[in-house]
Nucleic acid binder design. Sequence first.
DNA 1: AAGATCTATCTTTTT
DNA 2: GATAGATCTT
Length: 703
Amino acid sequence: MKTDFKEEWKHLNQYQMEAVLDESPACVVNANVGSGKTTVLIAKILYLHYEKSVPLEDMVVLTFTNKAADEIISRLRKKEPGLSREQVMGFGTFHSAALHLLKHQLSLEQTGWNREFTVISPDEEADLAAEVIAEQKLTVRYKNRLKKRLEQEYPGYVRGKESSRYRDDLFRLFPLLEEEKKRQNKMSFSDLLRVSAVLLRAGEWHPQWMIVDEVQDSDAQQIEFLEALKGKDTRLFAVGDPNQVIYSWRGTGENMFYLLKHRFAAKELSLPVNYRSSASILEAANRFLQSGAGIQSSRGAGGKIVVKNHYDPFQEAEYLAGRIRALHDAGRAYGEIAVFYRLQKQAELLKKVLERQRIPCEVSVRKTVRDIPVLNWLIKVLRFSVNPADGQMGMEALADPQYGETRTRAKAKKIIREQKWDNVLLYQRMLEFQDQEAWKKDTVPKAAEIFAYFGLREALHPTASAYQEDEKLVLRLLERICGYSREKGCGLIEGTREFVNQSALYGVNLLSADRDMDSAGIENFPGDTVKLMTLHASKGLEFETVFLIGMNQGLIPLHSQSFEQEEEERRLFFVGITRAKDELELSYYTNPGEPGISGEYSRYLRMLPPHLLEWEELRSEGEKRSNLQQLRREVQEQIREKKEQEQKEQEPQKNTAVKYARHPKYGAGILVSEDEMMVEVEFEGYGRKQFLKAFGEVTVEGE
DNA sequence: AAGATCTATCTTTTT
DNA sequence: GATAGATCTT
C-alpha cells in the first residue's frame, strides 16, 4: 500500500518538510514548544518507510519515557492500521530497545549473563547490594541512601576513579555486586544500556536509521548507547527542545541537545512555528526562552493572561471550583481544563474542594502493580519461578509478611540455600514452574489453572478481609500474562519471563489493555475530568484552559540554591505556560500558610510584559465568607483524618520485622496491629482475631 | 551512651 | 540556613 505523500503532507510547513526530507548522516532538530515535533517524527518514519523503502525493522526509534513511545506507536498505527508488533520492535525507550537487543540480537555468551536474564529495578538492586554488604562484611556508609549512592557513584567507578568520596568499601562492592547479579542472572537498568553498548561496539548489528525523540532529556549513558548503536552507514535523526530541560536535577548533565549535536557532528535544523498557543501566551513565553531566536506564532492574539490574587489556598480552590463550573457551563469540556502547581502537596486541598463542589477531577499519579501489595508479591513469585537463580526474589516471595508462607527472612534464606522444598508447597511450585512441559509449548492455560498451580488460594489467606479483592487482582494480572503469552505465541513460561521484565521497565498499568495493542488514551486519564498535576507532569500535554496556582515568591520559583537550579525553575515555568492553548490564568495567595513561602507574588509575574496581563483582585463578600468557614473546617478535618490514616497504614509496613503472637487455642499467628488495649492477630485457618491485652491469652514474640 | 561531626534534604521523578 | 539522620568520637 502506497500513501499519496502530496496529499499526506500538504499540512507540513517548510521547516517541518525540510526536516522530514533531510538525509544528512546526522541531523538534530531544534523543535520549539508546540511546533509539531511528533508530527515530524511520524512523517519522517513514514517517509523513510514508503519513499525510501527503509523497512521499519531497520529503524530504531528511541524515546525517553514509555508514554512517549506509546504515543508514537499509536499515532503510527492510526496512519498504518496493519502495523504488526514485530515491525515496531525497535520502537521504545532506550532501555526497552537495549532489552530487546540483548534478548534477540546480540550474543550474551561472554558477558556472564545468559538470555534468560530478568530485569531488576533500582530498589531491588539496592536490596541485593545490602545482602552482599552483609555477607562480605563490607563497610559501606550511609546505607539508608544506598540506592542513591549506587546510582551516583557508579559512573565514577566505571571511569576508573580510585575510591568513593567517603573512603569506604563502596568501590569494592561494585565488582562483587556485578558478580552476584551475574550469578542470579539479573540486570539493572544501567546494565541493560552498558552491556548492550559494549556488545554493539563489537559490531554485531546496526540499524539503518536511529530516530530519537526528546533528546534533551537523555543522559551520558544513553548518548553512549547511541554511539555504540551507530554503524558506518547508520543515520541519526534526533528531535528535542533545549528550552524544555526540566529534569537535569536527576543527573542529566548540561544541555544534552548540543552535546549530541557536537558528538555526531550533526546538522541543526529548527521548527520555529508554534501551533498550539495564542499569540499573547507565546509572547509571554518568549520572555522565558533561554535559547533560540524566539517562537513564531501562528494564531490570533487571544485574550489577556489573567493574574488573580486570593486570600489563601483554600479560597483559591473555592474560586477555581466556581470558575471551572462556569467554563464547563459555557461549553468547555472538563478534560480541556488543567490546574498546575509546583508541589505535589498542593494537590490535596485542591482535590478535596473540587470534589466537594462536584467537579470531576483527577490528580495525575502513576499507579503500577508495585503499589498494590498483593501484586507486588505475585510478581516476586513469578520472577523467581522464571529465574530460579534469583535467590533474592525467592527469599522475598517466601518471606512476605502478608502473603504466601510468611516465614522470617532468615528461614526463607535457609530454605533457598539448602533447597529444602519438602513441605513448602509454594517453593516447590516455583522451582518446578519451568519444568511444566505443557506450558513450554504454545498452549497457554487459563489464569485459574496457574492460580491453582501455585496454591494461591491458600497463599492469599482466604479468611483475610482483603481476600476477595486480592483474588480478583491476582486473576486479572494472570489473565493478562496469559493473554500476552498467547498473543506472542511463545508459551506461558517464555511469555511470563518477558512480561516480568517488561513490568520492571514499564510498570504495569492495570486499567489499560496491552500497551502495544491499545495504547491510545493511556497517556491521559480516561473520562472527561479536570486534570490536576505538578508543573513537571504537565510536560508534553496541552489544554485549552490552564490555571497555574501558587505564583508566590518562594514557590514559583521554588527557593533554589544555585544558578543552574534557578535556570531550571524558569524553564519549568516556561513549560507550564506553554501548555495553554487559549486561556491562561496565574494566581497567588496573600496568605500561603506555609513557612518559607511569602505572600508576595512571584517575580516571574514582573518579568512578563505588562500589556499582556490583566490583574484582578478578588474580594470575598461577608455572607459567602461564613459559608466558607464551615466548608474550610470540614475539608481541613477530612485532610487531617486522611493523614492520620495514612500514617497508620504506613507504620506496620515500616516495621519490616514481622512480629508473631501465640494463642493457646489458635496457635501461632502474625501480629496485625497492637495498641495499649488490644492486639489483632491473623491465624492461619482462623483469620483475624482481636484480643484484649488484659486477658493475657496472647503472647507477642519478637522474631 | 551521650555528644560531636558529617551529610543530605528542603521540591520535581523516569528507566 | 535550618534540620534530621547517620556515623564517629569520647
